[in-house]
Amino acid sequence: MRTAAALLVLLGSLLGGAVWQRGQRRRIVCLSGLSRALSRLEAELTGKNASLPALAALLAGEEGAAGAFFSALSEMIPELGERSFRQLWCEAMEGELCALNDSEICAVRELGAVLGRYPLDMQLASLSRCRKLLDDHLEQARRKLPDDARLVWGLSAACGLFLLIILL
Protein backbone atom coordinates (compact mmCIF):
# COMPACT_ATOMS: atom_id res chain seq x y z
CA MET A 1 0.00 0.00 0.00
CA ARG A 2 2.80 2.42 0.99
CA THR A 3 4.67 1.52 -2.16
CA ALA A 4 1.61 2.22 -4.28
CA ALA A 5 1.08 5.58 -2.58
CA ALA A 6 4.74 6.50 -3.05
CA LEU A 7 4.61 5.55 -6.70
CA LEU A 8 1.49 7.69 -7.10
CA VAL A 9 3.33 10.64 -5.54
CA LEU A 10 6.24 10.13 -7.92
CA LEU A 11 3.84 9.87 -10.84
CA GLY A 12 2.03 13.03 -9.71
CA SER A 13 5.27 14.98 -9.59
CA LEU A 14 6.21 13.83 -13.07
CA LEU A 15 2.71 14.66 -14.28
CA GLY A 16 3.15 18.19 -12.92
CA GLY A 17 6.26 18.55 -15.08
CA ALA A 18 4.39 17.21 -18.10
CA VAL A 19 1.50 19.64 -17.56
CA TRP A 20 3.92 22.54 -17.33
CA GLN A 21 5.63 21.52 -20.54
CA ARG A 22 2.30 21.11 -22.32
CA GLY A 23 1.25 24.58 -21.13
CA GLN A 24 4.47 26.03 -22.50
CA ARG A 25 3.98 24.30 -25.84
CA ARG A 26 0.39 25.60 -26.01
CA ARG A 27 1.64 29.09 -25.24
CA ILE A 28 4.22 28.84 -28.02
CA VAL A 29 1.62 27.61 -30.52
CA CYS A 30 -0.78 30.34 -29.40
CA LEU A 31 1.88 33.07 -29.63
CA SER A 32 2.95 31.87 -33.03
CA GLY A 33 -0.63 31.72 -34.39
CA LEU A 34 -1.55 35.09 -32.92
CA SER A 35 1.57 36.74 -34.28
CA ARG A 36 0.81 35.34 -37.73
CA ALA A 37 -2.80 36.53 -37.52
CA LEU A 38 -1.78 40.02 -36.37
CA SER A 39 0.74 40.21 -39.16
CA ARG A 40 -2.05 39.39 -41.64
CA LEU A 41 -4.31 41.92 -39.95
CA GLU A 42 -1.61 44.55 -40.32
CA ALA A 43 -1.14 43.75 -44.01
CA GLU A 44 -4.88 43.84 -44.71
CA LEU A 45 -5.33 47.11 -42.84
CA THR A 46 -2.41 48.72 -44.64
CA GLY A 47 -3.29 47.52 -48.11
CA LYS A 48 -7.05 47.54 -48.23
CA ASN A 49 -8.21 49.79 -45.42
CA ALA A 50 -10.72 47.04 -44.64
CA SER A 51 -13.27 47.11 -41.85
CA LEU A 52 -12.58 45.17 -38.66
CA PRO A 53 -15.68 42.94 -38.79
CA ALA A 54 -14.61 41.83 -42.28
CA LEU A 55 -11.08 41.21 -41.08
CA ALA A 56 -12.25 39.32 -38.01
CA ALA A 57 -14.31 37.05 -40.27
CA LEU A 58 -11.29 36.56 -42.52
CA LEU A 59 -8.95 35.76 -39.63
CA ALA A 60 -11.47 33.33 -38.12
CA GLY A 61 -10.11 30.93 -40.73
CA GLU A 62 -6.68 30.88 -39.06
CA GLU A 63 -5.68 27.73 -37.22
CA GLY A 64 -5.58 27.19 -33.46
CA ALA A 65 -6.30 29.63 -30.68
CA ALA A 66 -5.87 32.73 -32.88
CA GLY A 67 -8.50 31.45 -35.31
CA ALA A 68 -10.83 30.58 -32.43
CA PHE A 69 -10.29 34.05 -30.95
CA PHE A 70 -11.17 35.87 -34.16
CA SER A 71 -14.07 33.51 -34.75
CA ALA A 72 -15.47 34.34 -31.29
CA LEU A 73 -14.92 38.04 -31.98
CA SER A 74 -16.65 37.77 -35.33
CA GLU A 75 -19.67 36.13 -33.72
CA MET A 76 -19.93 38.98 -31.22
CA ILE A 77 -19.79 41.76 -33.83
CA PRO A 78 -23.61 42.09 -34.06
CA GLU A 79 -23.50 43.28 -30.44
CA LEU A 80 -21.63 46.42 -31.49
CA GLY A 81 -23.45 49.49 -30.30
CA GLU A 82 -24.58 47.75 -27.13
CA ARG A 83 -21.00 47.03 -26.15
CA SER A 84 -17.84 48.61 -27.42
CA PHE A 85 -15.42 46.83 -29.74
CA ARG A 86 -12.88 46.87 -26.92
CA GLN A 87 -15.28 44.97 -24.65
CA LEU A 88 -16.03 42.40 -27.34
CA TRP A 89 -12.31 41.98 -28.02
CA CYS A 90 -11.55 41.40 -24.32
CA GLU A 91 -14.42 38.97 -23.95
CA ALA A 92 -13.29 36.96 -26.96
CA MET A 93 -9.78 36.89 -25.49
CA GLU A 94 -10.92 35.44 -22.19
CA GLY A 95 -12.16 32.25 -23.72
CA GLU A 96 -9.54 31.65 -26.36
CA LEU A 97 -6.20 33.18 -25.40
CA CYS A 98 -5.82 31.86 -21.86
CA ALA A 99 -2.50 30.18 -22.77
CA LEU A 100 -0.79 33.59 -22.87
CA ASN A 101 0.95 35.06 -19.84
CA ASP A 102 -0.12 38.29 -18.12
CA SER A 103 2.08 40.71 -20.06
CA GLU A 104 1.01 39.18 -23.38
CA ILE A 105 -2.66 39.35 -22.42
CA CYS A 106 -2.17 42.95 -21.38
CA ALA A 107 -0.56 43.84 -24.73
CA VAL A 108 -3.31 42.16 -26.77
CA ARG A 109 -5.96 43.84 -24.62
CA GLU A 110 -4.38 47.25 -25.21
CA LEU A 111 -4.40 46.57 -28.92
CA GLY A 112 -8.16 45.97 -28.75
CA ALA A 113 -8.62 49.40 -27.22
CA VAL A 114 -6.91 51.06 -30.19
CA LEU A 115 -8.22 49.03 -33.13
CA GLY A 116 -11.04 50.64 -35.07
CA ARG A 117 -11.11 53.68 -32.85
CA TYR A 118 -8.04 55.71 -33.73
CA PRO A 119 -6.49 56.90 -37.00
CA LEU A 120 -5.05 54.13 -39.15
CA ASP A 121 -1.40 55.02 -38.52
CA MET A 122 -1.96 54.78 -34.76
CA GLN A 123 -3.66 51.41 -35.17
CA LEU A 124 -0.82 50.13 -37.32
CA ALA A 125 1.77 51.38 -34.82
CA SER A 126 -0.09 49.64 -32.01
CA LEU A 127 -0.39 46.43 -34.03
CA SER A 128 3.28 46.47 -34.83
CA ARG A 129 4.19 47.08 -31.17
CA CYS A 130 1.99 44.24 -29.98
CA ARG A 131 3.28 41.85 -32.63
CA LYS A 132 6.87 42.70 -31.78
CA LEU A 133 6.24 41.93 -28.11
CA LEU A 134 4.57 38.62 -28.99
CA ASP A 135 7.41 37.74 -31.38
CA ASP A 136 10.03 38.53 -28.73
CA HIS A 137 8.21 36.39 -26.19
CA LEU A 138 7.78 33.62 -28.74
CA GLU A 139 11.46 33.56 -29.58
CA GLN A 140 12.39 33.64 -25.91
CA ALA A 141 9.94 30.83 -25.09
CA ARG A 142 11.21 28.69 -27.97
CA ARG A 143 14.82 29.23 -26.99
CA LYS A 144 14.23 28.53 -23.32
CA LEU A 145 11.84 25.62 -23.67
CA PRO A 146 14.41 22.74 -23.90
CA ASP A 147 16.45 24.03 -20.92
CA ASP A 148 13.37 24.87 -18.89
CA ALA A 149 11.83 21.51 -19.73
CA ARG A 150 14.97 19.70 -18.55
CA LEU A 151 14.96 21.76 -15.37
CA VAL A 152 11.27 21.19 -14.63
CA TRP A 153 11.46 17.48 -15.39
CA GLY A 154 14.56 17.21 -13.20
CA LEU A 155 12.94 19.12 -10.37
CA SER A 156 9.72 17.16 -10.50
CA ALA A 157 11.60 13.87 -10.63
CA ALA A 158 13.82 14.94 -7.71
CA CYS A 159 10.82 16.12 -5.75
CA GLY A 160 9.02 12.83 -6.42
CA LEU A 161 12.06 10.80 -5.40
CA PHE A 162 12.49 12.86 -2.26
CA LEU A 163 8.88 12.18 -1.24
CA LEU A 164 9.35 8.54 -2.18
CA ILE A 165 12.36 8.21 0.11
CA ILE A 166 10.54 9.93 2.96
CA LEU A 167 7.47 7.78 2.58
CA LEU A 168 9.31 4.50 2.19
Binding site: L45, N49, A50, L80, L115, G116, L120, Q123
Partner: peptide, 20 residues
Protein backbone atom coordinates in the same frame (compact mmCIF):
# COMPACT_ATOMS: atom_id res chain seq x y z
CA UNK B 1 -17.95 60.07 -24.10
CA UNK B 2 -18.43 56.29 -24.23
CA UNK B 3 -21.97 56.72 -25.63
CA UNK B 4 -20.64 58.85 -28.48
CA UNK B 5 -17.99 56.26 -29.22
CA UNK B 6 -20.58 53.48 -29.18
CA UNK B 7 -22.66 55.35 -31.76
CA UNK B 8 -19.62 56.02 -33.93
CA UNK B 9 -18.42 52.43 -33.61
CA UNK B 10 -21.81 51.10 -34.63
CA UNK B 11 -22.07 53.59 -37.49
CA UNK B 12 -18.62 52.77 -38.84
CA UNK B 13 -18.69 49.04 -38.05
CA UNK B 14 -15.96 49.54 -35.43
CA UNK B 15 -13.74 50.86 -38.21
CA UNK B 16 -13.40 54.62 -37.90
CA UNK B 17 -10.30 54.42 -40.09
CA UNK B 18 -12.52 53.56 -43.06
CA UNK B 19 -14.32 56.91 -42.70
CA UNK B 20 -11.31 59.07 -41.86
Amino acid sequence: QEDLLLVLEKASGASLHTVE
